[in-house]
Design a protein around this nucleic acid. Structure first.
Lengths: 216, 216
DNA sequence: CAGTAAGTCAAGCGCCTGCCTTAAATCTGG
DNA sequence: CCAGATTTAAGGCAGGCGCTTGACTTACTG
């Protein structure tokens, strides 16, 4: 109906404006350093309470931003997963784990903020769980973790947990670091997002396959 | 003089109280989520402006907290560095890089907050540089980085930079993660700080020695 | 033993925040 | 075409913030 289009499109345009402004401000200054008012103003809304009206609390806004990107990332991840079948090569599974976010950022083109935004959110004690929930909601992600685990049967469970934690951190923070370098016109080790993902995947393969020493 | 002791001791006790309270609050809630007023109150100072009086801005307070721990960490690092001479084993240098912070936390005993505090600070866009400056001020740290570089002569400079970034993130965030797990009574992969450092060192050796693939 | 400087406390200022209320503009469904 | 609902705008409110000021206590100095 023309009705739904006209009005609803205006509304979702406003929501989009708020999401984009918030993502950017949160990425650049940190979530807690930005007030809902500032987000509303940056989104061009004369209304003080635009954020509250459309999203509720700041945590709800953060969740909405995450969901906005989740669909695309999930698509990329599913495509990569389908491509490797039931490989027993660690590298294949690490690729599936690492590449979705950089690929998504590359597809957005131009300057991006989402990686830095995620780095802020995972580090905030009050917001951390939101990202964990939203991420673990992805069945393909679980499949990939399982597949990787199957490639490393002799790794003790505690060491696996430990290294999974390391991988998680790097997958979030390294793209954020690259994003920041680009935003500040600093040199980056890699020319594009795909190469950056490749470098990260190389390192993670080494990390997963690292021998376990007997030192203290 | 008894004079200096009496008064100056009271003062430095107050400063210490503020530093400890701030470190704890910042670690638990995030730097930006805590006001200077809250820090003053948590330190038992009736005065609103105790933080401002003794330290100045919040950035100055953060720097003071970092310096408070830096001496001890530097001692540990120097001792480890002296112990390995001019080894050409990557593992030796990685140990020097990884162990100081966990060792320091272990030596403090009981619950700690410094690792989470550091994780908060490095992630804050406005505070990040403070920690970098203070860290790079350590000559032993530079020596260790040089030593490690010497062990990896055939690694392309960009890849080295990339992996150094990864190592930095893990060295800061993994202890923070362990600290948080302890604070929340969750299980940790390792029983003590030394073992945790060992696990991290294992992984970092693998990361540094990882082969460079030719994939995209 | 004053005089001075340093540290602490208490109160007040303007600013910004989140939240609430009201009003105008806009679109929807009958 | 018009009531009614939704969205945007605008302003007010209490509360918390950083910062300043001034009084009070304490300890060093000549």
């Amino acid at each position: 109906m023309a009705s739904r289009t006209a009005r609803a499109e205006q509304v979702s345009a406003t929501r989009e404006l708020i999401l984009t402004a918030a993502e950017r401000l949160f990425a650049e200054r940190g979530v807690n350093a930005v007030s809902n008012r500032q987000v509303s103003e940056a989104a061009g809304q004369g209304n003080n309470t635009a954020v509250g009206y459309h999203f509720g609390t700041k945590a709800d806004l953060v969740r909405a931003i995450v969901r906005k990107h989740a669909t695309r990332i999930e698509e990329i991840r599913a495509r990569l997963l389908a491509g490797i079948g039931d490989s027993s090569d660690v590298r294949d599974w690490v690729d599936c784990l690492v590449r979705p976010i950089p690929k998504h950022l590359g597809a957005l083109g131009g300057p991006t903020w989402y990686a830095r935004f995620c780095a802020q959110v995972v580090t905030d004690p009050a917001l951390h769980e939101i990202l964990v929930e939203e991420s673990l909601a992805s069945p393909t992600l679980r499949q990939i973790i399982d597949g990787l685990t199957r490639c490393l049967p002799e790794l003790p469970p505690e060491v696996r947990a430990e290294r999974a934690e390391m991988a998680r951190h790097l997958i979030v923070h390294m793209p954020a670091e690259r994003e920041r370098a680009i935003a500040e016109n600093r040199a980056t080790p890699r020319a594009n997002w795909d190469d950056a993902a490749g470098g990260l995947a190389d390192a993670l393969v080494g990390l997963w396959l690292a021998p376990i020493s007997s030192r203290s």
